[in-house]
Nucleic acid binder design. Structure first.
Lengths: 245, 245
DNA sequence: CGCAGTTTTGATTCATCTCAATTTGTGTGG
DNA sequence: CCACACAAATTGAGATGAATCAAAACTGCG
């Protein structure tokens, strides 16, 4: 009978990635069964972050990157004078913390916008495993590259789009990401405030609010505080491609 | 005598990185003598790009990243309606092309702003070498991470700074990068047009021109077309930290 | 139930854009 | 080497989209 006792050294988390329903979205993409089992050894720690708490802050020593298991985050950079630039919103399956690799310190803040859980991926170990598992290495490079491409998209938002175009692009992006996670493409709850949306889009909260109202008047969406229903996705897309004549 | 004939398979470029005076800025940072010699095998091809020519275009198959040996580039993304967002300006020692890893296609254009030369780094081979040389692996990760952090800086420019703050930040950034390459911190020639600066900073060319004129009136810089002389770097920095009261 | 935080909406201001004219610089071919 | 054409930069005047300031309504939490 004693032989059946599960050793304490094998925590439940041992099966972190191989059993995770996010494995098609997250770091394990493209790994074989066997390689997945190896990844389970790398990702042996999870961390709960309550709404409003920081996962890390600018200046913190960089030691790990984080995969979001559940929940929703924002990342931001603060200027001394209090101005905030939200650099992104992250949801389940997405990776946080890659900003810290270059300087060995985090360069932005990551804040949970709802109670969340992340998988801790110690970075030195990730590099070790990457040297053994080329599929992991390659996929990690893809994840970083996509972060760069995503950032270019935000630059386009901020650099050349008008307020309503920015908000339309933002809503369509959220819709697409919720869809990829099996949620409704047309109906969802925003986790962030108008102020945070504004900070991300380079607009003031009043401008965001007015744009929401305008979209509703035009029948593109229904807004009820944080609840959004997209009624005319094509109309929103048209806003993006249609430029003033 | 014949034994001394150098085989044709050993081109001059064999000593690409180990002899390059940019090695303290570029991909080889932190490598040992021995590892540098290995890197020479990876970087066996150079490419000249004339002013105005593309190194790659959005949509091109991704096969390699590029280290700038000499010259100056811009990267940009174009919208169907012709609007352009310049996502960055790159100079000697900097790496181009990492946007393509994620989708196996380039997602932006890279254009030479002066006659330039790049070292071609075939990406599959870079990954192979990275699995052998952990210092190379780690440094490549740092390079990608810094690109992400740089992009966050651009988002701050675009999202929360006013026109003159943006231009001041831009000039100080150029100055700092020229300094790192052994050039004067206070005097340099811009390689890009007012229009390209504007596209990078999310401003119209007229606004850029006016801001230059204003800086000159205030004694912060001297401008003569593309020639810039910084007369009061502290004053420019002050513009960044001083917020309207 | 009340209070703080968030959102909406309105009126006004302001920074930047747009349009336009002029100047300056650059490259090319006779 | 000069003249011409074209691209780039400067400057001005007026238009406009988003910011600012302000007030009211709504939501949710203790």
């Amino acid at each position: 009978m004693h032989a059946q006792v599960v050793p304490l050294s094998v925590p439940a988390l041992r099966e972190a990635c191989s059993q995770c329903n996010l494995r098609e979205l997250c770091l394990p993409v493209g790994l074989s069964e066997n390689e997945l089992d190896q990844l389970d050894q790398l990702v042996h720690l999870r961390k709960k972050i309550h709404r409003g708490q920081h996962l890390y802050r600018g200046g913190d020593a960089f030691e790990a990157i984080y995969a979001i298991k559940t929940g929703f985050f924002k990342t931001d950079v603060l200027l001394e004078d209090g101005r905030e630039q939200v650099t992104g919103f992250q949801m389940a399956g997405e990776i946080l913390g890659m900003d810290g690799i270059g300087s060995e310190k985090h360069t932005c803040n990551a804040v949970a916008l709802e109670d969340s859980e992340v998988c801790v991926i110690p970075f030195t170990e990730l590099e070790e495993y990457s040297r053994e598992i080329s599929a992991l290495q390659h996929h990690f490079h893809k994840v970083m590259s996509r972060e760069i491409v995503r950032d270019h998209g935000v630059m386009m938002l901020l650099g050349i789009m008008r307020a309503e175009e920015r908000l339309a692009a933002f809503l369509l992006n959220l819709s697409q990401r919720f869809t990829a996670r099996g949620y409704s493409p047309t109906e969802f709850n925003l986790r962030m405030t108008r102020n945070e949306i504004g900070s991300y889009l380079g607009l003031k909260l009043e401008t965001v609010s007015r744009a929401f109202s305008r979209f509703q008047e035009e029948g593109l969406i229904t807004v009820h505080q944080k609840h959004i229903q997209i009624r005319d996705a094509a109309g929103l897309k048209k806003l993006l491609s249609d430029r003033r004549v």
